[in-house]
C-alpha cells in the first residue's frame, strides 16, 4: 500500500482540469516516468510555478470538481511519479476519482466548510498531513496549529487501495 503522509501542496482553485494537470501534448509518452517534469505545467493559477512549487510535496489539498475533463489516467500517474499519492478536495470529477483509486491512490472528498477551514488555517504555511487509515482521521499540522479531520472512504475504495488497484482485484474476482 502507498504512503499517504507528507507535506501539503495547496491549490486554491476550483475546476482544475486534466489538461492543466498534464497537457495532451505529453500523452505521446508511453511510460509513467516520462510524465514527471510536466505535472501541472499548464495550471492557470496566479503565483503557481510548477518548476518550484511541487518540490517536497506529497499531498494535494484543493477545492471543487478537481480533475474534470479528459479521462487520461496520465493525470494520476503524473502525481504518482512525483511522489504525490493523495488528493483531498471538496469534490472530484468521476473519472479522475476512479482512476486514483484504480491506481491504489486516494482521492478523498471533504465538506466545503472543512476544506475552507483547512485553507484558512494552513494555506501559506509549511503544512504536513498524517493519514490514519484505521481511525479514518487526517492529522493536519503547520505553523504551530494542529487539526484532526475525520474522513470517510467506502469499503470498496479501501479494498482497491489495499489491493494496490482495480486490475489485480478484478482479475482475481471476475
Amino acid at each position: 500500500m502507498k504512503n499517504f503522509n507528507g507535506t501539503v501542496l495547496f491549490l486554491d482553485r476550483s475546476d482544475i482540469n486534466t489538461d492543466e494537470i498534464i497537457p495532451a501534448k505529453y500523452l505521446t509518452e508511453i511510460t509513467k516516468e516520462a510524465l514527471k517534469p510536466y505535472l501541472l505545467e499548464d495550471l492557470n493559477m496566479d503565483s503557481f510555478d510548477s518548476n518550484t512549487d511541487l518540490e517536497g510535496k506529497q499531498v494535494v489539498i484543493t477545492r471543487e470538481n478537481f480533475g474534470c475533463g479528459s479521462s487520461r489516467e496520465h493525470a494520476p500517474w503524473a502525481f504518482e511519479v512525483n511522489g504525490l499519492y493523495m488528493v483531498i478536495a471538496e469534490s472530484f470529477a468521476r473519472i479522475f476519482r476512479q482512476n486514483m483509486f484504480n491506481c491504489g491512490m486516494m482521492a478523498i472528498a471533504l465538506p466545503k466548510e472543512t476544506i475552507e477551514r483547512i485553507f484558512l488555517t494552513f494555506s501559506g504555511k509549511e503544512t504536513t498531513i498524517e493519514t490514519d487509515l484505521e481511525k479514518n482521521i487526517f492529522v493536519v499540522q503547520g505553523g504551530g496549529e494542529k487539526m484532526e479531520v475525520p474522513f470517510t472512504v467506502s469499503d470498496y475504495d479501501r479494498s482497491l487501495v489495499e489491493a494496490g488497484g482495480w486490475l489485480e482485484f478484478a482479475d482475481s474476482k471476475y
Partner: peptide, 17 residues
C-alpha cells in the same frame, strides 16, 4: 469514458465497475 486501468480490466475481463 474511463481511465487506463478500467480499460485494461475491460479488455481482460469484459467488466467495469
Amino acid at each position: 469514458g474511463v481511465g487506463t486501468t478500467d480499460l485494461e480490466v475491460g479488455i481482460l475481463k469484459g467488466v467495469c465497475a
